[in-house]
């Protein structure tokens, strides 16, 4: 085990844990943002630089500070390490710069983007960015491409996190898309006309932090904050598929099916394309109950799960919701 101090808070984690995951163990506002790192997918992380933190003391043995900011998502803890994130102004300044870099070639087309409302980049920019831009040049644009019957690639929005490439490598039989070209001309693509249509290829939509890979069966159907997420499952015939999903309802209609994500937007149980794209009837599913939505999410603004004054009295509420409500009790009016 290693004990570290993160923004003044002590936490003990197993050796080999990353700084980011140690911070997530503490939870709350001190957790660094992550745009490319994705715990369940090997090889991710280190690229977007959003999670850079200051290591003020390397370890108990060698308490020297690390000379540069380090990516917390791939840097492992050492016993006695002291890390500064929200308590270090230079970290916050650099993060502001990263937002700016990620946005200069982003189209900022949130009003017509299906990802709006559950977009990591939108959240990141809102929390860490500034409202103006210093970029006067033309932005990089690409044509939209349909890669297969279910997925649309809108490369203009991509932040080159590589998540979808690693996902396809690790979940599907035969990867057909990758990162082509280099520098700011690099793009996600299949090079030749090719379609991404493998059993688990739909998961690339869930791992995409922005609206670059979207579900064509859900395209322009509804803003996500007008839909109601409900946990459900089915006995999927595919042995590798968990069958545990979220159904996104508008009225009585299931508009889309996604895998379940944790509070950091990470999918732990992958689902197959049949569950995702072809089971859009309530009768296909066993309903478990409302999904928990973070109170910070815009989706919760229209969510029936709130307000809950005393969560303990609602027996079936997911444990995560109970924890969240205990930590962040609903606002009381008139305060």
């Amino acid at each position: 085990m290693a004990k570290i101090t993160f923004d003044g808070i002590e936490v003990e984690v197993p050796d080999g844990t990353t700084i980011l995951n140690a911070a997530r163990k503490i939870g709350g506002n001190i957790v660094p943002p992550a745009m490319c790192y994705y715990t369940p997918i090997k090889g991710t992380g280190g690229k977007c630089r959003a999670c850079l933190v200051k290591v003020a003391a390397g370890s108990a043995k060698d308490p020297r500070p690390m000379p540069k900011l380090v990516p917390s998502c791939i840097t492992t803890v050492q016993d006695g390490m002291v890390v500064e994130n929200t308590t270090n102004q230079s970290v916050l300044d650099v993060r502001k710069g990263i937002v700016e870099m990620l946005l200069i070639n982003h189209p900022l087309d949130c009003p017509v983007c299906d990802q709006a409302g559950e977009c990591d980049l939108q959240n990141f920019a809102f929390e860490h960015g500034v409202a103006t831009t210093r970029y006067e040049e033309e932005r990089r644009t690409f044509e939209k491409i349909d890669i297969g019957p279910y997925i649309q690639l809108h490369m203009t929005r991509c932040i080159l996190c590589y998540r979808c490439v690693y996902t396809a490598d690790q979940l599907t039989e035969r990867r057909v898309h990758g990162v082509l070209g280099r520098g700011d001309a690099a793009e996600i693509g299949t090079y030749i006309d090719n379609i991404i249509d493998q059993d688990f290829s739909g998961n690339v939509i869930d791992v995409c932090p922005v609206g670059a890979l979207t579900d064509k069966t859900f395209r322009f159907k509804q803003r996500v904050w007008f839909t109601k997420p409900v946990n459900a499952h089915r006995n999927c015939e595919n042995p590798k598929c968990s069958g545990n999903v979220v159904l996104w309802y508008k009225g009585k209609d299931v508009l889309r099916v996604t895998a379940r994500k944790d509070e950091y937007g990470e999918v732990k149980e992958w689902i197959c394309n049949t569950c995702r794209f072809e089971k859009k009837e309530t009768s296909d599913w066993t309903i478990e109950g409302p999904s928990h939505i973070q109170r910070t999410s815009v989706i919760s603004a229209n969510h029936y799960e709130l307000p809950v004054v005393n969560p303990q009295v609602i027996a079936d509420l997911p444990e995560s919701s109970v924890r969240d409500l205990e930590n962040n009790p609903p606002l009381k009016l008139g305060r």
Binding site: R174, R175, V176, H177, G178, V179, L180, R182, Y191, I192
Partner: peptide, 25 residues
């Protein structure tokens, strides 16, 4: 050409996309 790159992939025993990623880099 894409066909030549596919031949390279086949010769080595790797996926075509692994060649495209490299040739375009």
């Amino acid at each position: 050409s894409p066909e030549v790159q596919d031949l390279v992939a086949e010769t080595i025993g790797i996926l075509p996309i692994e060649v495209y990623e490299v040739s375009s880099f």
